[in-house]
Nucleic acid binder design. Structure first.
Lengths: 204, 204
DNA sequence: ATTCAATTTAAACATTCGTTTAATATTAGA
DNA sequence: TCTAATATTAAACGAATGTTTAAATTGAAT
């Protein structure tokens, strides 16, 4: 039971993750995974049975990472409402800066099969019971924010944070700006998004 | 040369469009297209040579529709800056309400191959020379808006408009809200997004 | 009615793809 | 060292997929 096992299994998983994220499930071939992981065709099935099971393992791991991040930030009792918005933006801009295909990958996979990947997390409950939700409610009652639909609010926060990563290839291609400059440019959004969001919360 | 030709060709294209938009290029099979269009396998190739050429024809048509919309709105000399923002939001919320898979489809296809589908439109030039750009510049000079990066501004406008359509299946699945209620809920954004955008333009 | 091009169809072709098999190599424990 | 489980490999299988072929049908012009 040397760690060559885990080595091979992990190498396959890593290679598959990269390919699935870039090209999606259907466009990624088992033979590509074998080649990219420097193993062979049979080993992929030896460790993961089927392509779908491999995909699901990766998907679950990725979603867990992603969602536990939200839940941790939202349920922190030590931070203010504003600090949570800041933390959210920074956490996801960090994550997506390192892994630029992640946003589109998640969107697509979950879109294709929302039931399969989301229901099991009990995400809604955790968010509804979170400190963040309570702080939102408090601010509403104190009149510090306007009567905004909380779904609009959350969608806006995610949209402003995530969307620039999804559109990067499009913007870079049409404008001719190179990737590095683009990512450098959207760094400023770490500061701006919380400001934007807070003023948006005052508009009815 | 009866219009059965155009009938068949169009029927194939329509069926293919629906499938490509829902499942993407790789996951859509030529046999599905044949079946969905109530034709047969060979006819698909008779009219479009290859699956890729069929896809490209659809893609080009779709992009043209989509982008000519932006260009028309941006280059209108009769409308104010604020009216253009309004028109943009309404135009795309109309379009995507009718065709709910469109946003994700465009994002993905263009992301996968930005050069192939975007460069030929000369989009950047048309936008840079548009009345919208001039009006933006004027407002900047008059001090009516802050020194904001125009790319951040455009990305925000598109993000706030498009993103709710991309996340619809995710939000509905996690919250339990049904589709109709969701779309009804985001209708309010037609009014809100222009307000949001205008206040965002005053933040440095 | 005949002709000829355009259209439609059924069948087949050649690959590719996901998966399995069976044989070989490696490792750890007795 | 021997054994048995685990890991790796090459080859093959069967189904699916994109595309082509060749024959049949249709429709309009002569």
């Amino acid at each position: 039971m040397k760690d060559e096992n885990q080595g091979t299994e992990q190498r396959i998983k890593d290679a598959a993750k990269g390919l699935f994220q870039k090209k999606g499930f259907a466009a990624t071939k088992t033979r590509e995974i074998a080649e990219a992981s420097e193993t062979n065709l049979a080993l992929v099935n030896y460790y993961f049975r089927t392509k779908k099971q491999l995909f699901d393992a990766i998907m679950l791991e990725t979603l867990n990472e992603l969602l536990s991040g939200v839940v941790n930030i939202y349920s922190n009792e030590e931070t203010t409402f504003e600090e949570k918005i800041n933390a959210f933006v920074n956490h996801y801009m960090d994550l997506f800066s390192e892994n630029q295909n992640l946003p589109a990958f998640i969107m697509n996979s979950v879109r294709e099969n929302p039931k399969e990947y989301l229901t099991q997390f009990g995400l809604l409950g955790k968010i509804q019971d979170s400190t963040f939700a309570k702080q939102f409610q408090e601010k509403l009652e104190k009149g510090e924010i306007a009567q905004v639909n909380p779904i609009n609010f959350i969608v806006n926060l995610i949209a402003l944070t995530v969307f620039p990563f999804i559109t990067q290839p499009i913007v870079c291609e049409t404008t001719g700006i190179n990737k590095e400059l683009y990512y450098q440019m959207i760094e400023d959004r770490r500061r701006l998004i919380p400001l934007w969001i807070e003023t948006m919360l005052r508009i009815t």
